[in-house]
């Protein structure tokens, strides 16, 4: 007997895995992790696009740096940091649980890490706008 069965629950509703209605903390954590993970991938791609400006030449790079200092882009950086912090800290919890550690305390760990994340985010927001 294999793990796979021929009997399939089609058609699926797309994006059901992100449907957090009627669900609890764990589902929110999972959905957040997935959304932020995908967001980070998109950012990584943008980041490479930006870095490729270096190949174009100094002028292009300078104008990019100027753009990067505009408040709008700085605000975007805060969102990016939020995503990174949520994903990283929650990922740490998922990894812990994956090793069988802190399983019964998973909710408390999630809330605790998110509290740490909120502090980190506040600090980094201040840094982003002041430096």
């Amino acid at each position: 007997m294999s793990l796979h069965s021929t009997n399939r629950a089609r058609p699926r509703k797309p994006l059901q895995w992100i449907d957090v209605r009627n669900r609890r903390t764990g589902m929110w954590a999972f959905a957040l992790n997935r959304v932020t993970g995908l967001g980070l991938v998109v950012y990584l791609f943008l980041h490479f696009v930006m870095l490729s400006q270096l190949f174009v030449g100094r002028a292009a790079w300078d104008s990019f740096v100027a753009l990067a200092r505009s408040p709008l882009v700085l605000a975007f950086d805060v969102v990016l940091f939020a995503g990174l912090i949520i994903h990283g800290l929650n990922g740490f919890r998922v990894a812990l649980n994956g090793f069988g550690l802190g399983v019964r305390q998973q909710k408390a760990i999630f809330y605790g890490l998110m509290a740490v994340g909120a502090v980190l985010l506040a600090a980094s927001t201040v840094l982003i706008f002041t430096i």
């Binding site: 669900r23 609890r24 903390t25 764990g26 589902m27 954590a29 999972f30 992790n33 997935r34 998922v94 649980n97 994956g98 090793f99 069988g100 550690l101 399983v103 019964r104 998973q106 909710k107």
Partner: peptide, 27 residues
């Protein structure tokens, strides 16, 4: 398993499948 723990939340019999999965992972 992505560790959302919804199975254990929803279980009407307090069976904790998520705990069982994590226990197997540890083993």
């Amino acid at each position: 398993c992505h560790g959302a723990f919804e199975c254990s939340e929803a279980c009407p019999q307090d069976f904790d499948p998520a705990g069982a999965i994590m226990d197997l992972r540890r083993a």
